[in-house]
Design a protein around this nucleic acid. Sequence first.
DNA 1: ACTAATATTTAGATTAGTCTAAATTTATAT
DNA 2: ATATAAATTTAGACTAATCTAAATATTAGT
Lengths: 218, 218
Amino acid sequence: MITLTEENYIKAIYHLGKYGKAMVNTNAIAEALETKASSVTDMVKKLSEKEYLNYKKYQGVVLTEKGKHIAVNIVRKHRLWEVFLVEKLNFTWDEVHEVAEHLEHIRSEKLINELDAFLEFPSYDPHGDPIPDKNGNFKNIDKIALSQSEISHIYTCVGVKDTSSHFLKYLDGNKIGLGTIIEVLHKEPFDNSVKIKFNATEMVVSQNVAKNLFLKEV
Amino acid sequence: MITLTEENYIKAIYHLGKYGKAMVNTNAIAEALETKASSVTDMVKKLSEKEYLNYKKYQGVVLTEKGKHIAVNIVRKHRLWEVFLVEKLNFTWDEVHEVAEHLEHIRSEKLINELDAFLEFPSYDPHGDPIPDKNGNFKNIDKIALSQSEISHIYTCVGVKDTSSHFLKYLDGNKIGLGTIIEVLHKEPFDNSVKIKFNATEMVVSQNVAKNLFLKEV
DNA sequence: ACTAATATTTAGATTAGTCTAAATTTATAT
DNA sequence: ATATAAATTTAGACTAATCTAAATATTAGT
Ligand SMILES: [Mn+2]
Ligand SMILES: [Mn+2]
Ligand SMILES: [Mn+2]
Ligand SMILES: [Mn+2]
């Protein structure tokens, strides 16, 4: 049996280990879960014992296949619930995360597969993140950050990296959302800000914004 | 802050105290929650401390208004989720209880009120139990058990008392469900069995069944 | 009214998850 | 190479929820 807390650790480690990084270190996990490093050490020993991950003292952890499988299933549930909340219950994309954080732990194969069908097997969640299917496969779109874009090219906005309420509300306020068509007008080398144009509006966004907005060439 | 376990105790006490019974006793709670009497005593002290109920040593407990409010809210969530599972996700009425047992603890005002609206404000759950509205009011239908029925009267089946999978599957197997029109043909004094007729079918049901099937005079 | 059976509470132990503070290891910087 | 800083682990303590076994209170039967 796996506990809710264990699930949260495994998911956090999965997300932290996603981009490169051979090993995920203790402090990173502690920060992600808003807990203390000493608590992480304890839990990581237990998860290692249960073979959800491999743990090298003072080095960090790597999920096993068994651990990855658990993680992907939680991500699947999290993102499907997010779609449900936005599509069916009038939640905005900045409201869904907190509730999905709890719904993701409800354990019922039938529930999640029926929900998937009810939502007509969505491939992406409200933040543009891919939703694994019931076998754990997800179609990864090849997206780039706005900061990686090329001048005078035209892109569609397909996702966000930062899913915090602050950032999402900033985008809402500026009428940028998934599907928005963006032309890159200028990239300022001095502060890495980017001048963009969309729906006849021109605006300059900071490097911070540019790094957190994902695009796909149209 | 109230824990998931506390919520389960409060809900169990609410259901046990519903019919008459001034006080709910320790063993009844222990049985309902499949735990030991000593655990109940501990928890009941804590809930009393937090003013969710009044506890008289060796006598039992009664929920306070504060406790009742919590209980009704959990019941509301439980029954709304049950409706969702049946209406939208193809669950049968004997499959919903277990999952709803977990979903009922998800805490989000918006979630539950939007779900309520999405389901078009249902008044009854799949077992015929009334669903409290957001203010905690529920319209109680005046129903009687089949065992209380009168000969040659005609009734509509409006609910079940026992919501166990066993009983529900028995009803399914005999094509009895909510909405079924039933005529009472004979009541056998010897064993309290009842002979009924519905959809041109005649059958005899045991006292056990007769006590767990709720009817309303048509 | 007294005894026996039943119900309930207490005492003490256990497990999961967490924390602070101290000890240890690894990384960095002269 | 050595000292210092940063990261990590250990030790010991705490809370929530549970259990078993023993003690105590209530109820029922004669
Ligand atoms: Mn979570
Ligand atoms: Mn998301
Ligand atoms: Mn529950
Ligand atoms: Mn029900």
